Amino acid sequence: MQASPQVTVLGECVADLLAEQDDGEAGLTLRMLPGGGPANTAVGLARLGTPSRLLARVSGDLFGRRIRAHLLSSGVDLSDAVAAREPSTLAIADIDPEGQAAYTFHARGTADWQWTGAELAAAGVGRSACVHSGSLALTLDPGGAAVEDFLAAARDRATVSIDPNIRTSLVDAEHYRRRLPGWCALADILRLSEDDLRELRPSSELGAACADLHRAGARLVVVTRGADGAVVSLDGARATIPGVAVDVVDTVGAGDSFTSGLLHRLGVRGLLGGRLDGATLDDVADACRYAARVAALTCSVAGPNPPWAHQVDAVMDDVDSLAAP
């Protein structure tokens, strides 16, 4: 396989606050971990060996400084990130006994949503073969429209990937439904969770929903299903990807890690840089199997902490040895 080309990720970097200890009346201890879907994806790509460039508006407050240090230590290129004066977005994660997270956001007037066309034009696509975006930065005003315009311009030079990453605690589901056709028209790759799909197409079965997304413009649709793996649909041809068994600590960042694994694997196969020209169902299924292992490893540790390439390689070696006669 060839070296992976650069991927630009555009979107938010959020301070995730996870409960670490609850002493009842004595108080609740929260642990801050750098998060935000796009930032997690950028970290995941860099750790896997893909040159990863993050366009983010990073606050200069306490949380923002820790987020910046985390991104740089993982190898993410922040040379075109904006040093923002606004405060960081906070997301308080409530983890249930199965490791699933529900979020409460403190996001009014924070740095992540204030993108301007001038800021994004100054950054540009650069030499990236792929631009990935989504989540709240693509949804919230005033910056959402500027992010959409950037993706539209990027299509001339790069593969476009979008993850809606629906957060109905902050944005009404109907708002996502109205925006979805436009996102499909921009996206070559649409990765969304099974829960996202239920919100967007509550009365549709999976095959019919994928067909609608293809008709709206998305060439590759990947629906992740947690422990049950994923369904991949390329121009309507579908394959089912099995899940990877793991002892789950929590699922925070699992979908973002899946996206990073998917884009990394497509990149090393030479399939990024256009409209997925030459990609076959076998190609994208292979990328999704790799991505499922990346996501599983993320679930095995606390918070959005995606694995490094050598950790994924070790898991894949173990699987290969078990499959050998």
Rank of each mutant, 00 (worst) to 15 (best):
L170Q: 10
V244W: 04
R275V: 04
S204V: 10
I162F: 15
S52D: 10
D141K: 14
D212M: 11
V82C: 11
E199M: 08
S193F: 08
M32K: 09
G124R: 01
E174F: 14
Q100A: 12
L72G: 09
G229H: 01
A218S: 06
P325R: 14
A323S: 06
V131K: 09
V244M: 02
M1V: 15
G267V: 00
V82F: 08
C288D: 03
E86A: 15
F150R: 09
L197G: 02
S52E: 04
S161E: 12
R269V: 02
V131C: 07
G134M: 01
R155M: 13
A185F: 08
V131Y: 10
Y290T: 13
A146D: 09
G99R: 00
L192D: 05
S88T: 02
R178S: 13
A111M: 01
P307T: 11
G35E: 05
P51R: 08
Q21P: 00
D22L: 13
A245Q: 08
R66N: 14
H264W: 04
D23Y: 14
A154G: 03
I67K: 06
D94S: 13
V7A: 05
R47W: 11
R191I: 06
G226W: 01
S204R: 07
R157H: 15
V249L: 00
A129F: 01
S260C: 00
G274N: 10
L30A: 12
R191S: 07
R201A: 10
A153H: 10
Y103G: 10
A211Y: 07
G267L: 00
V312E: 05
R269C: 11
T251C: 08
R31K: 14
G207H: 05
L220G: 02
I95Q: 02
F258R: 01
Q311I: 04
A111D: 03
G255Y: 09
C288Q: 06
E174Q: 15
A295M: 00
V268F: 08
R265F: 01
G255R: 06
D96Y: 07
P181Q: 05
G37A: 15
V268Y: 08
A216F: 05
D94E: 12
V147Y: 10
L48Q: 11
V301L: 02
S203T: 14
D286I: 07
M316A: 08
R57E: 13
A26I: 14
A56N: 11
R127G: 11
L190P: 05
P304V: 09
L151I: 08
E174Y: 12
R289S: 10
T159K: 09
A101L: 03
A187H: 11
A324C: 03
H132A: 13
